[in-house]
Nucleic acid binder design. Structure first.
Length: 414
RNA sequence: GGACAGUUGGGUGAGUUGGCUGAAACCACAUCCCUGCUAAGGAUGCGUACUCGUAAGGGUACCGAGAGUUCGAAUCUCUCACUGUCCGCCA
């Protein structure tokens, strides 16, 4: 959630930022008004309650002194009636505000480039030269078929479209990648964590998936529970509604989880192959930091993800997202895109974001700085998406006959 | 899933004939004092959120969540959640 007080005090500045992210200024104007309305409603309500409380205290005294209370009771009854009305007004104002406020995306950092979609993203650098092939490199689904690695049809049979089955070497490589990623992350100082793959609505709201993106989530029927769309949700919310100490920060976490996404709105995109599935494996990094630490940790996380790709000898590039392509919770995001020779293009394999205090405000994660409680900064990033890494290995390590070499660093894991 | 018990501040834990308890006490923590040795003693402070105020200091809400009874509820009633124990089931 954005800082509404900031919005109120520096409206022009704040709205300029959100316009960069594609929010129209009318909605912002409305948000500002709703916030002001709520404040006023609460002020009058609290005043009345203060009076009521005072009278009730007096009531106790009267009783003890055995004085007559009929007159006082009449007064306090009248006040009570007034309060019921004020309460209703305040509650409505609260609900109206939340409806808009929780759907408002994070402010982008000032450094974020202007732009409307991925076309406007800025390439920061390329790492490793793509290998040149003496033959026409195949796409991963063709290789999958040749090697018997992936069964798309049986995945569909077991569940529905966009589910797949990995067999034999592919299944082993999937597991090897998970272990490799976790080991590297651990080397870099991230604590390995194993978390529930199902989280409740409060947690999903904490990291920003709810209420706005409910359609993207698999919900458990009849329960207040959802399959997680990313380990970012359980890892970040580990500290939901907690007050940490300065000493504990930064907290660096890594965890493997499957991720479940409905991929609503991406009908027709990447329907072929394993790029966009309803279920995929991912190893995630999450950092909980002070505002001062977050910049440096962010860089470290980007470098770590890039380093993993380099160790796998996978060519990739580092891209800074423009305002329009930025996710809901992110203040700034850097994507890592891996080279896919079969598709002849770079495809996203990791996305690393600093949400600043946006998630912290929703999830109520704070730390004690002296006497004050300060919102933490939360960061998250993939290191890496496992299925897409498998795809990248298939395409980059393919031979002319369709066989696939095992990357050097993975050999000890297989 | 069934039966019973419980759910209080960072922790332990008082408080159940409704008002004087936003909450004793102890621990932890912070600052200061004392002390000269890796320890002890003393003083003070110390829940969260919102809100008014330059500040000092006020106000409102919160004792698992929600609803109710009442002038007034941590204390009474109801619903739900969670924890514990016993039973059932199970990797």
């Amino acid at each position: 959630m954005i800082d509404l007080k900031y919005l109120q005090k520096n409206f022009d500045e704040a709205s300029a930022k959100l316009v960069k992210k594609g929010v129209d200024s009318e909605t912002l104007e409305r948000l500002k008004e709703l916030f002001a309305t709520l404040k006023e409603a609460n002020a009058t309500l609290e005043e009345s309650k203060a009076e009521q409380n005072k009278m009730s205290k007096l009531f106790g005294e009267y009783m003890r002194e055995k004085k007559d209370v009929t007159e006082l009771k009449a007064k306090v009854d009248a006040k009570k009636e007034e309060i019921v009305g004020l309460q209703e007004t305040a509650r409505e104002a609260q609900q109206a505000l939340e409806l808009v406020a929780l759907a408002m995306p994070n402010f982008p950092d000032d450094s974020v480039p202007e732009g409307v979609d991925e076309e406007d993203n800025v390439e920061l650098k390329k790492v490793l030269e793509p290998r040149s092939f003496e033959f026409e490199p195949k796409e991963h689904w063709a290789l999958a078929e040749l090697n018997g690695w992936i069964e798309f049809d049986r995945g569909v049979k077991l569940a529905k479209s966009r589910f797949a089955v990995l067999r034999g070497e592919a299944a082993r490589m999937e597991r090897a990648l998970i272990n490799f990623f976790l080991d590297v992350n651990r080397e870099k100082g991230f604590e390995e964590v194993c978390v529930p793959f199902i989280n409740n609505a409060t947690m999903l709201q904490g990291t920003g998936q709810l209420p706005k993106f409910e359609d993207d989530l698999f919900k458990i029927d009849g329960e207040d529970l959802y399959l997680i769309p990313t380990a970012e949700v359980p890892l970040t919310n580990l500290y939901n509604d907690e007050i940490l100490t300065t000493k504990e920060l930064p907290i660096l976490l890594t965890g493997y989880t499957p991720c479940f996404r409905k991929e609503a709105g991406s009908a027709g995109r990447d329907t072929r192959g394993m790029i966009r599935q309803h279920q995929f494996d991912k190893v995630e990094m999450v950092a909980i930091t002070t505002p001062e630490q977050s910049e440096e940790i962010f860089k470290m996380m980007v470098e770590n993800a890039s380093d993993i790709l380099t160790r796998l000898e996978l060519p990739h590039r580092v891209v800074e997202l423009c305002g329009g392509d930025l996710g809901f919770s992110a203040a700034t995001t850097i994507d890592l895109e891996v080279w896919l020779p079969g598709q002849n293009k770079y495809r996203e394999i990791s996305s690393i974001s600093n949400t600043r205090d946006f998630q912290a405000r929703r999830a109520k994660i704070r730390y004690k700085d002296g006497k004050k409680n300060v919102l933490v900064n939360t960061l998250n990033g993939s290191a890496l998406a496992v299925g897409r890494t498998l795809v990248a290995i298939m395409e980059n390590y393919q031979n002319e006959d369709g066989s696939i070499e095992i990357p050097e660093v993975l050999k000890k894991y297989m």
